[in-house]
Structures are given as C-alpha cells and as structure tokens.
C-alpha cells in the first residue's frame, strides 16, 4: 500500500448527537479512530445510530441536520462542526441505501460530472477524471443511459463511481445493498473490496449482509442504542457469543461454529468463510 499505515483519517472524541425535536440521543459518547486503508464494517439493530454515525463522517451532522452536538469530530484534518459538507465531500464520499434518491440526471455521464463541476474543476480535468472512472468501473456501455433505466446494482455502481471521481480518501456506504438482490449485492461489495485493495481507499460500510463483508473487512464495530458496544478485528468481534442476543446478525458459518462448540467440537478460530470452516475442520 502507498499510504502510511497509521495515518488517522477520522477521529471522534466523545461524540453525542440528539436530533432536533427528539427526546433521546441518537448516538452517545462515541470515540473512535479510523486509519487510512481500513475497511470497517458497522452493524447493529435498526435504530441503533448507525446512520447517524455515518452522517457525522461527512459533516451532514451537525451542519445539515439540526440538533445537539457534543464532543469533537475531526475528519481528514477538518473539525466537522466547523466545516460545511461540500468541503468534507472532497475527502469523504457517501453512498446511500436508495439509489433512486442519489441519482438525479438524465445520463450516467452527467451524474459523474455533477460532483466534479461542484468542485469547480476545469473542463480538461473533469474530462480526465470522467475517463478514468469510466475505465475503472467499466461504465462505457452505460454512459449515455438514464440512471433510472439501470438495475439497482448498476445504479449503486454509478453512485459509487460518482463519489470516486471526486477522489475521496474515505468512502462511507450506508446499507448500499439493502434493496438489491443477492447477486447484485455481491457485485457491489466486490467493487468496494477492489477499491479498498487496489487503491487503498478507506471504507466504512453499514451492512446487514455480514457474511459478504466479514471476510473482507479489517474491523467490525457493533452498535446498540447509540453506543459502540464492540470494536475490533472482525474475527475477534465475531467470537463474542452474545452478538445474536444483541440483535446483530452473524454469518451462518459463525453460527455453525458456535453450534459445534455447544456439541464440544472446538475449532481453533471462528471461520469467516466456508473454506475456512473446511480448513478448521480438517485441522481437527
């Protein structure tokens, strides 16, 4: 990897946020550091504050959403409380759950160009970056198509491409596959993996399909009622037996591990993929 391994990109210190009009805090006392190149999976039951956390990363909170913001959040050197989202969006790309509400224009090309125009880039630079993402994401056949004509998977691909064209350091994805069929979901996740591995892009992803992300992610954060209740390497977090009772979905292969354990078959480590399960079984 090109980057220095321990450069901190995001640092939250005791961040709490309460939406205007709400009675409870959506997130409480969140402290975390995210380093360059990390691939962070965020999970937790619905309403636990995952989306709110994502909104802090690019300053939508506290700039766009009104409410009570406590603590300090620094993203790529900027204090988010003092930095508008349009500046932070240069550093943090954001992909949302509903493809429909983040694609606005009549062609894929215009979709990608929009963000670049907002950055005020000159035409030749826009053309260069457009070409680059079109190549990288293999968008040539879709370029003149209307985003709403595309499948859900293709739409998310375009949404990601439109972010990447702006060359962010961090890509935040908030349940990007919730409305996709399994194969399209896998395609999108594979693409995110590629971005992380080939370009060293830092990824923070909220995702219910834990089985798809667990083998790829380097770190897993579990949230519950606005707090971080677990944070560590994926395998370590998934070794906690009480995750399911905390409302966190675990991959079936992890369930198998625990059920075998209950029958006194102790595998050395928690497997994250079917292949690992096989290796562990063969070892025993």
């Amino acid at each position: 990897m090109v980057s220095k391994p321990d450069r901190v990109l995001i640092e939250l210190r005791k961040v709490s946020f309460k939406y205007k009009g709400a009675t409870e805090y959506a997130i409480r006392d969140i402290s975390l550091r995210i380093h360059e190149g990390e691939f962070v999976l965020v999970v937790g039951p619905s309403g636990c504050g995952k989306t709110t956390l994502c909104r802090v990363f690019n300053g939508l909170i506290p700039n766009f959403y009104e409410g009570e913001f406590k603590g300090k959040a620094v993203v790529c050197g900027y204090d988010v409380a003092k930095t508008p989202t349009y500046i932070l969006s240069k550093y943090v790309g954001m992909v949302f759950q509903e493809p429909e509400n983040q694609l606005f224009f009549s062609t894929v090309e215009k979709e990608i160009v929009f963000g670049l125009e907002n950055l005020g880039l000159p035409s030749n630079e826009i053309a260069k970056r457009l070409n680059e993402v079109v190549e990288y994401f293999k968008l040539k056949p879709l370029l003149k198509k209307a985003p709403y004509e595309l499948s859900g998977g293709e739409q998310q691909k375009v949404a990601i491409a439109a972010c990447i064209a702006m060359r962010p350091k961090v890509l935040v994805l908030d349940e990007p596959t919730a409305n996709l069929d399994p194969m399209s979901a896998k395609d999108v996740i594979d693409l995110v993996k590629k971005l992380n591995r080939e370009r060293g892009l830092t990824v923070i992803i909220v995702e219910h399909r834990v089985e798809l992300i667990a083998p790829i992610a380097t770190r897993m954060i579990v949230m519950n009622r606005g707090r971080i209740v677990r944070d560590g390497p994926v395998r370590k977090v998934l070794s906690c037996e009480d995750l399911v009772s905390k409302g966190v979905a675990v991959p079936k292969v992890v369930e198998i591990y625990f059920k075998l354990k209950a029958k006194n078959i102790n595998l050395r480590t928690v497997p994250l993929t079917p292949e690992e399960l096989k290796q562990e079984l063969l070892r025993g």
Binding site: S89, M94, N101, G120
Partner: peptide
C-alpha cells in the same frame, strides 16, 4: 423524507460550494 435524502445526497456531492464550473 425523500427531499431530505435528496438534499443529503446533493451536499455529499459537494453541491453548494458556490464556485461551480460547467463542463457542458
């Protein structure tokens, strides 16, 4: 709610900086 999501997505793509260029 949709209008909020749209506004959010627009801001996340650097809309509102005021020094826009025009490619087309």
């Amino acid at each position: 709610r949709r209008s909020f999501m749209i506004a959010e997505a627009l801001e996340s793509r650097a809309f509102g900086s005021g020094k826009r260029s025009s490619f087309y």
